[in-house]
Design a protein around this nucleic acid. Structure first.
Lengths: 222, 222
DNA sequence: AAATTAATTTAAGGCAATCTTAAGCCGATA
DNA sequence: TATCGGCTTAAGATTGCCTTAAATTAATTT
């Protein structure tokens, strides 16, 4: 799940980025309204966190423009102000929720999950053959025995499992797992697919992760 | 823990009843909406599993009525449909979670546990291997001998144990144990984890507190 | 109140795990 | 056969955790 944070205070921005990444979201940060608006209009994001007051376009303006183009993208406003007027303005502009600063990260997370629930089933466990991936313990097992994966390996496998039986293109993967948007000219994916197959001991008779030449990969039951 | 299942298909109902009873829940089954609603309104249950479509009152209607009378009773909807609209309706009606049929029983179990966790979280003693943490006496022992911990060490260990088998991110920890909400740039956690491991004498063969690089820590049985 | 002790936090260096790049190889496809 | 894309491996760069010690803050004693 990809989240765009538009926030000029570097402290808060960094805090949000780290916290959300620990929750395995792919996070981009824009520190002013103009770049924020441009990135938001790219349509690459599943959710937007907008600060109310940012240099350049105001959060509320970004909200209106984005909602105009992508009515279904949930937007949560971060605001230092809590007067009724402004929250009403925000909701009129199409924001799905707002949260007052300073806030508890936990609470923000809750609200994000509520917004994303219809999109991601917010599952905690994924299954593939005898493989189980559990996001709550960050553990992967095969036939009950634990398989130690690195963070990126875990994220990649999770992404494939979230999209089980669906082809994940290389672009899909590089954008959602690596959070890279340009320069697709890398072979990280190959390296990590390789590592996964090795660690999961996927033989020819058990190739749950199949290559679609020229396109990408699929995780599928056999 | 008492669970009410409202489900008309006898196959699924029986499957649920048996599975949940094996997990030592007390399970009642209602096969139509009317009796389901009546039983639910008795207030005897800790959690409700509602099928979306049942004869008589629909699951969603039951959900609304029950939530009206018992806002704190968690409700999980079972649904064959997965359109965004309907899951959104369900959540608006107050459901705490939903799961699509067909589902893995394990997954359902996970979700039930998540919902019930706040209720059973009022424990005073927590266990991890041969370690016992008692919140009422503020004491920690390992193999019966007391281990003196400072306040912060105790709080940290308690938090990890309350979330046993679940990953605690650094953000989780800093918010819940230190009550810090914006300053993410600190290494206190490392220092205290280090102290805990030392005092608890967690060797490689006994590393009940594991590091999840890039995310945080988990307390888990081996 | 001052001094002493304990607890907590900050800071920094070292180290190991992880990530990324790059290059050679192999098989598929045209 | 030539080309393209994917596989595999190894090496260098980077990141994040561990550890220790010093600095700050809080609690306790004199």
């Amino acid at each position: 799940m990809r989240i765009l944070v538009v926030e000029d205070e570097p402290g808060i921005a960094g805090f949000l980025k780290q916290g959300l990444e620990e929750e395995s979201f792919a996070v981009d940060v824009a520190t002013d309204g103009n770049t924020g608006l441009n990135q938001a209009l790219s349509g690459d994001y599943d959710l937007l966190l907008l600060d109310w007051m940012v240099p350049g376009n105001s959060g509320i303006e970004i909200c209106r423009r984005v909602k105009n183009k992508f009515p279904d993208t949930p937007i949560i406003m971060l605001t230092a102000k809590d007067t009724v007027d402004e929250t009403v303005f925000g909701l009129q502009a199409g924001a799905n929720d707002y949260i007052k600063k300073p806030f508890h990260f936990q609470e923000l997370l809750e609200r994000i999950k509520v917004q994303l629930r219809p999109i991601s089933a917010s599952n905690s466990r994924f299954f593939l053959g005898s493989i189980i991936l559990d996001t709550s313990t960050h553990q992967v097992t095969k036939n009950g025995t634990e398989i130690k994966l690195t963070l990126k390996e875990f994220d990649l496998l999770k992404y494939l499992l979230q999209n089980k039986e669906r082809v994940c293109t290389r672009t899909n993967i590089i954008e959602n797992v690596w959070d890279i948007h340009f320069d697709y000219n890398t072979s990280v994916i190959d390296v990590y697919i390789n590592a996964l197959r090795k660690k999961l001991e996927l033989s020819d008779t058990e190739n749950y992760i199949q290559t679609i030449r020229g396109i990408g990969y699929v995780a599928k039951e056999l």
